[in-house]
Design a binder for these strands. Structure first.
Lengths: 174, 174
DNA sequence: TATTGTTATACTCTATAACTATA
DNA sequence: TATAGTTATAGAGTATAACAATA
């Protein structure tokens, strides 16, 4: 409970001590060998496991900064599309507009993003990275790259490229 | 709001009408082309998108039965490991024991799973599929197979196998 | 009338911690 | 003391619906 940053923290998921289980289970598999059976052949199950592992690593690496996967995605999209509206951002992230409000509220409080009024349409804002947001994003990117290398440690370049391609096919709009 | 089954339902996520957006966006991409930039090269982002899409399809196909991905996984694991304890199930699913309690509560209410007392250890239960649970699981499996074929429509057999292999590597315990 | 951002509200999932009853 | 299951509680994430301001 550090006083400074009460918001946007949270360690999330999975207690650290639980990790030995898998090792122990594989070492003396005969003892209790819980079979996952058909599940290991299902895309959804494999995706969930992989995603939990990757997100856990992301949180471990970046929650100190108050950065979550969604917040990083938001920063990256604003950086690549300066002046984007909240509604457009919601469509890109595929979340509800109300979700974007909270996301931007948080990033604004962290002084990483600003809502700038638009003359052409007084209903909406143009989202921009602040100066601090830009430098923070550079720093965050380096950490994300390290995280990425860590979770892809068991894949070579070709395999990773291929995996991304297959995931894009599965994740493509129907 | 059908009176019969008030629990365990919920359509979840993403409004149906929203689906046209992606089509329109690709058709007239030039108009607003929001760039995802670096994000599309990140495993975590690709995993999230794929998982959302796959889970949405799962819900659409199976929530009528009151079956969610987690509940299906639970049924499958109990089927493959009859008599398993709740703690062991929690370890296998990689969730907290308290989460298993609710999961089993629900499946018990659906008359799919039973907690059976163990003589050797009066603290724990042996989990089993009920008779109805077994027949339901057969039916559910057929729907899951159809769902699986649908979300893997853009992959051939070899590609799917490969994808599962790569996902297992990424999702493997560190 | 339709859209943007917003607020209010609710529900799911999952976690931690404390409790009980055994072991 | 340690473990199995349970309960209570809390927080993150996301959804829907209704509203004000603006188009």
């Amino acid at each position: 409970m550090s006083a400074a940053k009460k918001k946007g923290k949270r360690a999330r998921r999975r207690s650290a001590p639980g990790k030995k289980i898998a090792i122990a289970a594989s070492r003396e598999a005969a003892q209790r060998a819980v079979s996952e059976g058909e599940l290991s052949g299902l895309i959804g199950y494999a995706l969930r496991r992989a995603q939990l592992r990757v997100f856990d690593d992301f949180y471990a690496a970046l929650s100190v900064e108050g950065i979550t996967p969604a917040r990083f995605s938001t920063l990256a999209i604003i950086d690549g599309n300066p002046g984007i509206s909240q509604t457009s951002l919601a469509q890109t992230l595929d979340i509800a507009r109300s979700g974007v409000v909270m996301l931007i509220d948080t990033l604004e409080q962290l002084d990483l993003v600003s809502r700038e009024p638009i003359e052409a349409d007084k209903r909406s804002y143009a989202l921009h990275l602040t100066r601090g947001g830009k430098t923070a994003l550079q720093r965050i990117r380096r950490q994300v790259a390290i995280h990425e290398a860590r979770v892809c440690a068991r894949l070579d370049e070709k395999e990773k490229k291929w995996l991304l391609k297959m995931l894009a096919r599965v994740g493509a709009a129907r």
